[in-house]
Every structure is written in C-alpha cells, then in structure tokens.
Computed example of a mutant assay.
Amino acid sequence: MLCVQNLSVTFTMYDRGLSQKQTTAIADLELHINAGEVVAVVGSSGSGKSLLAHAILGILPKNAHVTGKITYNNEYLTYKRQVELRGKDIVLIPQSVSYLDPLMSVGKQLSRIARLRGLSTNASQQIIDQVLARYKLAPSVKQLFPFQLSGGMARRILVAMAVIGQANLVIADEPTPGLHPEVVVETLNHLRELADEGKGVLLITHELEAALQIADKVAVFYAGTTVEIAAKTDFTHRGKALRHPYTQALWRSLPQNEFIPVSGTQPNPDTLPLGCLFAERCPIATTDCLTHRPPLREVCNGLVRCIHA
C-alpha cells in the first residue's frame, strides 16, 4: 500500500546573521506498509518519526527539501496527489487532542468529515451515529465541545474521524501518551480493528511495549533513518532474534527486561557522522563502521542497517 524508499529531508535554516545551514533530519529512510497490516515506528525523540508522517501527507514546511520516493498503491505520491488524498484516503490521527477545533462542536466536526465523502445530511448522521456507537460514545456527544471531553473520549473521536472518512491508510502519531492504561489498550485495539478490516495502519510511538500489542512488524528509527525492520515475534527473551545493536539495546533497556540504559546520545542532525549513525555508541563497532554508511539489507527475514548483523 505504502512504499517509502531512500527518503531524505533536509531543512535550510539561518544560523548566525544571514548565514544558512543545512540540517538533515531524515536520511535514506525506508518503510513499507501492506493493507491489513499495523507497522509500528519506534525510536527516541528526534529520530524522524513524526517528520515521516508529515512527509507522507505533504505538510512539511517550505524550507524542507525532500528527496527519495514515496508511492501509494503503486503510484508516485506527488504533492498534487497528497493534497487530493489527505484527509480522505490518507488520514492522520494526531498526537494531541488539541487538533480538534475548540470552537466547533464534535458533531459539526464529524459532519464535515462525512461531507468529504459526498454523503447527504441524513446519510452522514446515520454513519456518524453508527461510528459513535461502535466506539461506545452516546449520540449526545455530538453536542459537546472538545474541552468537555475526557482524554479517552477525545482519542475515540479522533479515531472515529478516520473511520467516518473511510481512509485506507491511517497514520496514528503518538495516540496513547498520558492516557490511563485501560484507555491505551482500548485505543490500540481500535487501530488493530482498522487493520483487520483491510486498512494500513502506521503507528508512531515511543512505547515499544504498547506497539508490540498490535503491530505486525516494527520499524526502528535512529537519527533519522531506519536501522531495522523486524517482525513482532523477534522481540522475545533477551532480543537474540533482533539484528541491530541499537534495537537490542532498546529492547534490553525496558524495565521488564534487563533495564540496561543505552550509553551516549543520538548524533546532532547538523553534524551527522560519515559512517554508521550508531557507531559511537555501539559496543561492536569497527573501523569500517566509522567510515561507511551501511545499506539496509535483508537478514533472517528482516531488514537491518548493520555490517555485523
């Protein structure tokens, strides 16, 4: 359904005075999503997760220079096509409920989504009521404004918008932070249901453990690139089935595993190293790792960017 190949995003920014600098936020990023599949994207802050979503939707700022190739249903995703599909066939469930219009009732916001499908007023209301019932929201919710919703209710409204619009690709950007554990499970299950109906779901999250509850595969980002794409079943025991040292360290840092912190810091996007982006923190790095950026290659039914895998 979605294929991202060699995606790079560079921002032109002012440094001192009128001098400019180039900041590479995403470099040679790869990702594939099939219909009926949940692909989780995990990684630390600044690894390019949300930027990927913005690149797919075509909502990057004007100072962004994008290279690489993004295809959707085997057609090149040009800016014109992004505008045509955005909010209809491809939708974003944002990480903040503040994306809901604070001056418009929930019912009017849902109706606006329904109208994009060209439905009559009666048909729109029927579908809205059906979707609200599906997510255990009373019809009276339509009269409420966003500030009157609980966090869990607001999250369900955002998911309902994606369902009402009948999008085939759903991008959920950090949909669970700050929610009660029961609401987290509920939100994730809703996303899994969408995938089971044949939609593609891109789940962007910091929470690896939560992602593994519903994901079919996990893409691990580091410093703006994909270091590994692994099946959900590879995240077991001490992570011996994982291929990249960073993915292994990420898995072992969880409290329920060995709770071992990852030493060092992620490289600055202004001064990315020539070689492997994780080399300075990697316990098995060699001279070759410092001088050559490894390609993404297939190892044991997964993809990894490491010469030692």
Rank of each mutant, 00 (worst) to 15 (best):
A223T: 02
D196G: 07
T225S: 13
I204P: 01
K217D: 04
L202C: 11
T233A: 14
T233W: 09
T236I: 15
K240E: 12
G200D: 04
E228H: 07
E209L: 09
G224P: 02
A231L: 09
T226L: 14
G224Q: 03
H206M: 13
T226R: 04
G224H: 02
V218K: 01
A210M: 14
K199V: 12
V220P: 01
L194Q: 10
I204C: 08
A231T: 10
A230S: 10
A195G: 05
F235P: 00
L202A: 04
T226Y: 03
A211R: 02
T236C: 07
L212Q: 11
I229Y: 02
H206W: 09
H206T: 12
G224W: 01
L208D: 01
A223K: 03
V201H: 03
L203W: 00
F221Q: 03
H206R: 15
D216Q: 09
A195E: 09
K217N: 10
H237T: 06
G239S: 09
Y222L: 10
G239Q: 06
A231K: 14
A223Q: 05
E207A: 05
I204D: 04
F235I: 12
K240G: 15
D196Q: 15
H237S: 14
V227N: 01
T226K: 08
T225H: 04
E197S: 13
E209A: 11
T236S: 14
G198N: 10
T233Q: 13
K217M: 11
T226S: 10
V220M: 04
A211D: 06
E207I: 06
L208I: 15
I204Q: 01
L212C: 09
I204L: 13
Y222Q: 03
V227R: 03
V201Q: 04
E197G: 06
A230N: 01
K217P: 10
G224T: 00
A211Q: 05
A215G: 10
K240W: 15
